[in-house]
Nucleic acid binder design. Sequence first.
DNA 1: ACCTGAACACCGTTCAAGT
DNA 2: ACCTGAACACCGTTCAAGT
Lengths: 208, 208
Amino acid sequence: MTRGPRRSVHPDAVLDAALELIDEGALTMRALATRVGLTPGALYTYFPDRSAIVTALADRLLAEADLSLLDDPSLPPHQRVENYSLALREVLLAHPAAVPAILGAAFNGPMALRVGESLLGVLPDARATYTVMVYVLGAIALEAADLEAFGTPPPPEPDRVAARRAALLIDPEQFPRTYRELDTIAAYNSTGQFRWGLHRVLAGLSGS
Amino acid sequence: MTRGPRRSVHPDAVLDAALELIDEGALTMRALATRVGLTPGALYTYFPDRSAIVTALADRLLAEADLSLLDDPSLPPHQRVENYSLALREVLLAHPAAVPAILGAAFNGPMALRVGESLLGVLPDARATYTVMVYVLGAIALEAADLEAFGTPPPPEPDRVAARRAALLIDPEQFPRTYRELDTIAAYNSTGQFRWGLHRVLAGLSGS
DNA sequence: ACCTGAACACCGTTCAAGT
DNA sequence: ACCTGAACACCGTTCAAGT
C-alpha cells in the first residue's frame, strides 16, 4: 500500500556518502548534503541528527561481517569464533575512522543483538561471550587508532610493522624489557598477534 | 637558571580545566580559555592545538593509576596484574568521556611506555602483555561508553545493572539465547564481569 | 614570551516558506 | 512529506598589535 518514493535520495545513499566522508577524514552535515545533492537542512527529514547517522552507519558496518561464519556446524566452536572475529576485524579496519563510533554507539543496535545471539550459540556462557567481544573489539579499536596514523589507503601490514619498528626509539637503560621486545611490540597491530591473543583468550575460557 | 614564571596560569591548570570540561560534556577552546581566565588565542602559547591538550590529558590520566601495584613482590603476578587493572579501570571510569581519547592517543605517550615496561616485568612475554592490555582497555572502553548514557555523577553500579536489566526488552522467539541470559547481560558492565573475564584471560595466558 | 581583539573559515540545527 | 534559503549560535585557529 505504500506509494512510490517521494524522497529524492534513498536513506541508504545518505549512509553510503556518510561512510565515504568518514573514510576521507571528516563527516559534516554540510559535506554530506552536498554529496547527496541536498541542502543541509534536508538531511533532517532522513535522520533526526548527526549522531543518528553515525549510529545507523555503525550498525550497517557491523552487518557486513558474515554472521553465518558462527553457525557452520562442520567446524569446532573455537574455529567458528576465530573465523567470524577475523571477518569482523577486516570489515571494521577497512574503515578505521568509523571504529570509535562502533564501540560507543552500535553495540546497542539491532545488529549487535544478532551478533550476541549467534555468539551465545557457540560459546559456553554469556560471560565468556562478553569476554571474547571485549577482546575482539578492544584489539580492533587499538588497531584502528594506529591505522589512522597511516595514509589512506594504508600500506600493507608488513610495511606498517616495519615502519613502526623503525619509529620505536627506546632507551635501553630506562626501558630494558621494552627494548628487548621491540620486534614483538612493532607487531602488536597485526593479524598474527590478533589471532595469538584470541587463541589464548579462548583457551582460558575453555578451562572455566 | 630559569626565571620565574611569566605565564599567568600553569599548564597543569589548563589540563585541570580541560578535564573538568570533558567531564561536563564539552571541551572547547573557548570554554577552556574562559575557565582559566584567558582569551582563546592565548591557549596556543601553551599547546599547539586542541588535540595536543587531549593527548597530554590522556597521558596524565594514565599516570593516576598506581603503577607500583605491578611491582609488589609479595603478591603472585596475576594478583598484581588484577590490582593494577582494577585501579586503572577506576581512574578511567571516573572520566568516561575522556576514555575514547586514551584509546586513540595516549597509548603512544610517555606514561603508556612506563605501563608497558612494568607489565613486561610481570607477564611471561610481550604478546601476553598486549593481550592483557587489549582486554583491560577494551572492557574499559565499552563500560565508559555505557556509563556516559547515565547522568553525572552516575548512580552506583547495582543501580546501573538494575536499570539496564529493566531496559532490556527482548523477544524470546527471535533471540532465545539472549533472552535466557538477560541477567548476566545486564551485568556485563560491572566489576564482577571485569574480574571474571580478566581471570579467564590470565588463565589462558598461563597455559601457553 | 605572553596575551588581546578581531577576524577567517568553518560547524550542527532550526524554521518559515515553498512544492 | 520533502526541500530550500537563510539565519542562529556556535566552533578551532590565526595574526597584527600591544606589554
